[in-house]
Computed example of a mutant assay.
Amino acid sequence: MTDSPSLNAPFTVDDVEVMSREYLYEGFFRLDKVTLRHRQFEGGWSGEVVREVHHRHDAVGVLLYDPEQDKVVLVEQIRAGALNDAHTPWKLECVAGLVDKDESLEDVARREALEEAGCEVGDLILLHTYYPSPGACDERVTLFCGLIDSGGLGGVHGLDEEHEDIRVHVLPFVQVWELLGAGRLDNAMCLIGLHWLAAERASLRARR
């Protein structure tokens, strides 16, 4: 039986040579064409590898949870990446937004909760930082759980200058879990956040 290789990263950024970078398009996001070569696991260097990389700002997501009422706040809006979805391009999601260079991650979470859901956030709990699609995109997402009072929340929110039309849903956790099981919550933030919440929900409610 062969021993499993070490899970410590064997290479670093010093083991990649970026030979050229061409900007193909720049609009709301940017698309780069990158030519590179890299060291290989069995020794030596690869040949030239050409990849297109979707370049975008890092993002923050926040799963809004009311432990007193055991309710989750989700937002619904149209998503351009889901226009060919057989069910609907309107997606139920966690509150989220892009990071401005002069903001802390916590400030982004609180700002987006207010803009997208009209919601003031109390405690923020850091869950994970992750790459949602590292094969093609350089974005990193930091995900929080924000503890809130869901009383009075709802309606339609968003910034006109960003063409946002966002509907707020305040739902019992049990119903949200059923939506997840039915495949209605089909984005990474919801899946990661709600599986974390399912494991931690009892301890969060005990903090009341």
Rank of each mutant, 00 (worst) to 15 (best):
G158S: 02
S46Q: 01
L105A: 08
L197W: 06
R79G: 09
C190G: 08
D15T: 05
E120D: 10
D123F: 04
S150M: 06
L64W: 02
W90F: 12
D102P: 00
V99A: 03
F173K: 11
L63A: 01
S20M: 04
D107E: 15
D165F: 12
L64V: 07
C145I: 15
V13R: 11
G152W: 11
H195S: 12
E22Q: 11
L63H: 05
H128E: 15
I166S: 05
E162C: 02
R37Q: 03
E120Q: 14
S20D: 14
A188L: 13
G118S: 03
E164Y: 00
D85K: 07
M1E: 13
T35Y: 04
G44H: 00
L64F: 06
Y25F: 13
D186Y: 04
G61Y: 01
H57V: 12
R205G: 00
I148L: 10
P89L: 00
L126W: 11
V13K: 14
L159Q: 10
D186R: 14
H87A: 14
A206S: 13
G181L: 03
R21D: 07
H38D: 04
G118H: 02
A80T: 10
P10V: 03
E139A: 10
P172A: 06
W45M: 11
V13Y: 12
S20L: 05
V174A: 14
V168W: 00
D15F: 04
N8E: 15
E164T: 01
L185H: 00
V53M: 12
A86N: 08
V34G: 06
L98H: 09
L197Q: 05
Q175D: 13
F29N: 15
G27D: 12
A9V: 05
V62I: 13
G146A: 03
V50F: 02
E26Q: 15
E116R: 13
H87M: 09
V18N: 10
H169A: 01
Q175K: 14
E161K: 13
V174R: 11
R30T: 12
W196P: 03
D160Q: 10
F28R: 14
E112Q: 07
L83V: 07
G135M: 04
E178A: 13
L114S: 09
G118P: 01
A9P: 07
P10K: 05
